[in-house]
Design a protein around this nucleic acid. Structure first.
Lengths: 248, 248
DNA sequence: CGAAGTTTTGAGGACCTTCAAAAGTTGTGG
DNA sequence: CCACAACTTTTGAAGGTCCTCAAAACTTCG
């Protein structure tokens, strides 16, 4: 853990800039935010459900999920996050976590105090808008997941999750064509998909049998992207890759 | 349709103020936003999926849902909205709608141009924060719905939806104790719950048989609030009634 | 090489779906 | 105010998707 690492290493600023120009002063102010690097092992809680938080996390490397646990022990994973994502931007205004955050592989994050983020957001309205936009995309992804678990078959929703993961990895240069790492156990994937691990195993087998995907050592290859997209009803609109409305 | 109705009639400002003090100047600026009243009949689209929008809507009276339609015709309702809700605040920055908005009863809304909203949000950071907070609560509700359809039985998730609806109606004075109007057909409710209409009908019958609820002419009575809350695993945390973090 | 974790297989059953038709409710016009 | 149409809810029956439990096979890692 070192003090005040530069935020620019985490690719989040790069993401905001991909979505729209940001003035040099705002970039400088953002990059100057006090950040602390922290490292987590596999299967560690970064934030526990119900915990009060004081910092937000930028993900430098690794994979985490946000999840909720029900009283009967069942768990629903709400989203996965990868390099360049701001994991819990919402905690800036909602400091009591209504869900947990947990690593799936060794993970590095940069922590920034909420107060510092609120401060730059108020001083630079363009940054405030960029952060707001980011939480809106977050919400759009949650909506898509609701559609996924609510109205798609196990086969369709599994295909959909794989395509979303691939798309987002590509954006940050972690997928090579149709091949990408997916270092998440089937038990965890099934918690994201709202199905049982056993049924997920059979579903993945069926996708392989139909030559839609192949898998080896937690790497996935989309063998037939077109049929996969059709099967999943995958449409990237909800990821809003075009960035926010431009303000005159 | 009359020109520039006062926004204060729609209770949205009241909601923001319930969540935290707002300066008189900000209140005045917000109330001065150019608003146009529009009225819609039952089962009309306020926004169509994929449509480009230029205004956001405050709901004065009525009930609407946001929904997505899949290619096979299946539909998932993503949220319901009632008096005092800002229905599509997100369209301010995401002008292309990734979902539709439809009325369930005759509905009145006040429309405000996106540009005007962005303007006050930039001029009054406290308003920017309040709007941001509102979209964060929106996202929290979507997360809860993902949990609902992903990990709860039909019985549990039906109970959960009823309790959420009651809670939110109460906040705006539309529920009398444990009795509240729910003017939504079972077909639409089943689209929100991710189950078939037939199964919802049987599920509601079971809840009635177990003396948890009663229903008459689209009015619901929660007969045993305690058992209902336990059954549903209903916890109001995700609705964040306490408002956002106070900024010093 | 053994231990721990993960994926796969098998079997039986529960939950929920689909289809189709009946019963009930609401709204409209004569 | 009744009659009829349109819509909504309920009922019945058969079947499919997905679940649970339990054990075996396979991987990964110290």
């Amino acid at each position: 853990m070192s003090d005040s690492d530069p935020l620019s290493t985490c690719l989040y600023l790069a993401k905001l800039q991909r979505r729209g120009a940001i003035s040099p002063e705002a970039v400088a102010a953002f990059d100057g935010l006090p950040a602390t690097r922290r490292e987590f092992d596999t299967f560690r809680d970064i934030v526990r459900e119900g915990q009060q938080t004081t910092h937000s996390c930028f993900l430098e490397s690794g994979v985490v999920s946000r999840y909720r646990t029900l009283r009967n022990g069942a768990r629903q994973i709400l989203s996965f996050h990868i390099r360049g994502d701001m994991i819990d931007l919402q905690s800036v205004l909602l400091p009591i976590a209504d869900h947990g955050i947990r690593t799936h592989v060794p993970t590095r994050v940069l922590e920034v105090p909420h107060a510092a983020i609120l401060d730059v957001a108020a001083r630079f309205p363009e940054l405030g808008r960029a952060l707001w936009f980011d939480t809106l995309v977050d919400a759009a992804i949650f909506r898509e997941w609701t559609v996924n678990v609510g109205r798609r078959s196990a086969r369709e929703r599994t295909a959909h999750l794989l395509l979303e993961f691939q798309y987002r990895l590509r954006e940050v240069g972690l997928a090579e064509g149709d091949t990408f790492p997916m270092p998440i156990s089937q038990a965890d994937l099934s918690d994201a998909l709202g199905i049982s691990p056993v049924h997920l195993s059979r579903t993945l087998q069926a996708l392989r049998k139909d030559r839609l995907i192949t898998m080896f050592s937690r790497t996935v290859v989309i063998e037939d992207p077109e049929r996969m997209a059709t099967l999943a009803g995958f449409d990237t609109t909800y990821l809003h890759p075009e960035g926010p409305r431009r303000v005159a």
